[in-house]
Design a protein around this nucleic acid. Structure first.
Lengths: 196, 196
DNA sequence: ACCTCGCTAGACCGTTCGGTCTAGTCGCGG
DNA sequence: CCGCGACTAGACCGAACGGTCTAGCGAGGT
């Protein structure tokens, strides 16, 4: 019945909406993007949006953030499973962010900082998705640091600091139109993780 | 003449507009605040806004950011002149941020991250003010680290990392409604500054 | 053949957006 | 006393906002 339908019923429209929402929200933030912008980018009519995301813009943004969060978490998990050290994973993320920001001429931000600064009580779903995203990245990175031999508490702290530094670096890099600051993040975290 | 007028001609309206803009932009970001919100908070008519800030919202936001930047830079300079170590200044900023965020129930952000994620080509003045703010904080903190005995290049890097970590911590703290991550920033930077 | 229903399609709604413009008030120099 | 420029005041503008609603398309089941 309804459960079976969810397995294959992906008529592309929903995915197109999500893809457009991801890109646009990362570029201009939640309030900087109108639903009509998303509709135009996805080449979808308004009815489809409110059919797939009944709660509207908040709903769409929340799912978009969840998608970004999942992608980054998968990236971390993949590297972690391959045996990469925590600091190396952080370095890989920073490098990826730097490349993409430069490629987009700083008109776009990776991760979710562009939306994180604007969620409020008016956007409960988005706020929840953001919190969940950060929690997920932290735990994924913490697992990598534990594997490196750090005690759990210290691994959790290193993971938190890594997430926060990456988000901050993305913001500063965009404001200054210079990815240099991203390169310093991984060594910073590596030093934290290495020292007793 | 015009030069003399600028010294005392502060009829409160301009300042009220700036104060309201600062608070609201920090709480909801550039696109999350309407000019009418600012007008209402400042109890000023529309004519006054466009008299004092001819370029409108972008203008107002840029000056508001410059004000925040100057306040933080003054805070750094004051502590630095008093002989505080760079890492201690970072700790003081982080503590201040944590206190104010908790006091405002996470409905408001210190520093300028809320606006930094949304500036674009449509808001050139704001974008310039943001870049200038970060550059100012970095150089002010770098001076403190140089005084601590770090070589200039390393002091500059420590300052950059400090700024970026603070902004990132503010964002993550708000998203998770928990100031805990702010407490880790200063030790992180201290370790970076201390180690050879 | 027909009916159902998931989905598309876009006209339409009231509100609010950032910004402009004219009128009027006030203090100050001539 | 007059006038002039700085500033206040808010009506007004077209555009865009997020969201609702009805109509219709088309594949699948019976």
């Amino acid at each position: 019945m309804s459960a079976a339908a969810s397995a294959d019923a992906r008529p592309a429209t929903r995915e197109r909406l999500l893809a457009a929402a991801r890109t646009l929200f990362q570029a201009r933030g939640f309030h900087g993007v109108g639903v009509s912008d998303i509709l135009a980018a996805a080449e979808a009519p308004k009815g489809s949006l409110y059919h797939h995301f009944p709660a509207g813009k908040d709903d769409l943004a929340a799912v978009a953030v969840a998608g970004i969060a999942a992608d980054v978490a998968a990236f971390i998990a993949q590297r972690s499973d391959a045996g990469a050290a925590g600091a190396d994973i952080v370095a890989a993320i920073a490098d990826m962010c730097a490349r993409r920001m430069a490629a987009e001429a700083f008109a776009w931000s990776p991760l979710i900082s562009a939306m994180a600064a604007q969620a409020g009580p008016e956007t409960p779903r988005l706020a929840a998705a953001l919190a969940l995203a950060y929690a997920g990245w932290r735990s994924a990175l913490a697992a990598a640091f534990v594997r490196d031999g750090l005690p759990p508490a210290r691994a959790a702290e290193a993971a938190t600091l890594a997430v926060l530094s990456l988000e901050g670096a993305v913001i500063v890099a965009r404001a200054q139109r210079d990815t240099a600051c991203l390169a310093g993040v991984a060594p910073l975290i590596a030093r934290f993780a290495a020292a007793g």
